[in-house]
Amino acid sequence: MQEVTEIRWHARGGQGAVTAAKMTAEVALSQDKYFQAFPEYGPERSGAPLVAFTRLSDEPIQVYSAVEHPDYVLVLDPTLLDVTDVTEGTPDGAVVIVNSEEPAAALAGRPEMSGRSVYTVPATRIALETIKRAIPNTPLIGALAKVSGLFPLEAVTDEVRASLSKKFGDEVVNANLEAVRRGYEEVSGE
């Protein structure tokens, strides 16, 4: 069977989870990997909980069903921990990265996190301080790069620069690059 890395994103509508799943796919493209990125389809409403998926592999990916057993779970909104089990279906040792001001140890004690590797990154604060908007997706991609080692930080920053510089000026591009870098540096956990 082919080796596929599976990622699940939990967020609320408007927090950029689908964009994050897409950007991760673009990074994979630049690394000559195979990839898939798709949301769980349904009515899209700002503020409503949503789920998106990314698959990464060195070989073509031919499974199109929803990700059942993600290796990585990224939580863009810490309030979701209380309304949904973000670890559902995850195997032992799965990595959970939460956008939170709390230390990872504080979340690791939650019963559903047992046996999972928990990391936190203050992605909303980083976003507010860099891009001046509470969209935590780019710091989380930086955090994913650090924790997973799936791709180097430069691959993410190169992709962010390439995709944003088509539409935005240096200020916006640099703010986003800073957001990615800080996510990479400030993620902490086990």
Binding site: Y34, F35, Q36, F38, Y41, I61, Y64
Partner: peptide, 12 residues
């Protein structure tokens, strides 16, 4: 092509 499953998913 399959709606959403393929039409809405990003792939290479």
């Amino acid at each position: 092509i399959d709606g959403f499953i393929i039409s809405g998913a990003i792939g290479p």
